[in-house]
Design a protein around this nucleic acid. Sequence first.
DNA 1: TCGACTTTGTGCGTGCGTTCACAAGGGCTT
DNA 2: AAGCCCTTGTGAACGCACGCACAAAGTCGA
Lengths: 216, 216
Amino acid sequence: MARLPVYLRALHVLADRGIVTVSSEELAAAAGVNSAKLRKDLSHLGSYGTRGVGYEVQYLVYQISRELGLTQDWSVAIIGLGNLGRALAGYGGFASRGFRMAAMLDADPAIVGERINGLTVEHIDKLERVITDCGISIAVLAVPAPAAQPVCDRVVACGVTSILNFAPVVLTVPDRVDVRKVDLSIELQILAFHEQRKAGGPAGVEQEYLEAVDGP
Amino acid sequence: MARLPVYLRALHVLADRGIVTVSSEELAAAAGVNSAKLRKDLSHLGSYGTRGVGYEVQYLVYQISRELGLTQDWSVAIIGLGNLGRALAGYGGFASRGFRMAAMLDADPAIVGERINGLTVEHIDKLERVITDCGISIAVLAVPAPAAQPVCDRVVACGVTSILNFAPVVLTVPDRVDVRKVDLSIELQILAFHEQRKAGGPAGVEQEYLEAVDGP
DNA sequence: TCGACTTTGTGCGTGCGTTCACAAGGGCTT
DNA sequence: AAGCCCTTGTGAACGCACGCACAAAGTCGA
Ligand SMILES: NC(=O)c1ccc[n+]([C@@H]2O[C@H](COP(=O)([O-])OP(=O)(O)OC[C@H]3O[C@@H](n4cnc5c(N)ncnc54)[C@H](O)[C@@H]3O)[C@@H](O)[C@H]2O)c1
Ligand SMILES: NC(=O)c1ccc[n+]([C@@H]2O[C@H](COP(=O)([O-])OP(=O)(O)OC[C@H]3O[C@@H](n4cnc5c(N)ncnc54)[C@H](O)[C@@H]3O)[C@@H](O)[C@H]2O)c1
């Protein structure tokens, strides 16, 4: 379930405030979902609340963390230390959630050897060895679009089965491999779509096209 | 439909290769979706293909661009020029899709006044004026979590109705406002979840918890 | 100890998105 | 000009996820 991380975050906030128990209604509001959905999600993973009281925050944090596999640390490799890769590498919010930045790789000789956040950038040629040695289980691709598929293939060949892809391409991978794609251009385009709807929607279909192609 | 941008990207690739027409089957493969779904999506927005041939690439590009509102330029403000904000500001992939970085805002005096990608970072105090003057219609929030809701409120008060949020918080906004959230920690957590499943799933439920809390 | 109140867990109806499968329609070849 | 073949557009079934609403269950006060 993709909502568990959201619940977990909300629970951490509550825990930090010293709150011991929480009702499904309160937690659902904090997570921005329906309370019935929340209860169904929680019951689905076998956690029990107490009727008349609610859920014990600490217990739920542990249950969800375990379900998500956050009771262990995961080693992550960042491939491509350009604009985006550096931002990710310098972000502290990952380490605090059990994700350890274990390796950084790039093809640019000017970047290889650089130290970022206490880690030395390795050359992409060493990919296979680095991934094996560091016990990488998740790869983050922040390389240009044309490089994404080739790099992805190499990563998969090393046995990595989880990939977070920032390049604007559809990656082809074997079934056993999970790919999640973050495409910021698409997010903006979806916003633009709705924005346009609010403003009255598109008009002058055929006319506009002919003018654009042939001139007025 | 959230898939239109994906189709559009695939079409641009085809157009660059000089391809004139494309069948739903081919385009669907390139976009990573089912061909029936693709045809339904396209028919849904009124575009017509030619039976026995397929769709004209250029025509489809124009149709989808128009539907998404990409025939006009949108002015975007980036708020928070830290790690992530800078990466976004320096990214060329937005401008080429009709999104103009029109304003940058930050609260840190050390950052205000800096020039990034040809634009001067303004102080967040000037938010209201900048948004109005630059005709901002989309705001990108790349500020720390605690600052997100207050900044969001101010942006919404200026009349902005589209927000892209990178802060790990659930934003509360009026109904007319669209918020899209990009949460990279959640993406990693979802990958970890599946990774754990592949490795055999969680085991030793109650036992583990009691040990973690009470000691062995 | 008992009753009233609170909150969980879930059965069920509903609505949406996906997918199969096919008929209608247009091009291309002969 | 006519038939063959390819591809679109869509009807209909399927499945899933959401959310309402309620009974079971446990707590807290008297
Ligand atoms: N920066 C953004 O805000 C942003 C937004 C949306 C999408 N993206 C996408 O994210 C990806 C990275 O963006 P960026 O702005 O960081 O680009 P960038 O050009 O700044 O960085 C890319 C890095 O990848 C390295 N690289 C190139 N080929 C490589 C290879 N074969 N193996 C290893 N490393 C290689 C380059 O040396 C460079 O350091 C791109 O696909 C881009 O489209 C970025
Ligand atoms: N960097 C990443 O890879 C990454 C990954 C996931 C999530 N995020 C989230 O994105 C957001 C930004 O991350 P970051 O790494 O760039 O953080 P950062 O601390 O590097 O940058 C935040 C910027 O926001 C500015 N700021 C603070 N308060 C402000 C206010 N009230 N108004 C305007 N500007 C203000 C700061 O001066 C700073 O420049 C955070 O919420 C973070 O949790 C970042």
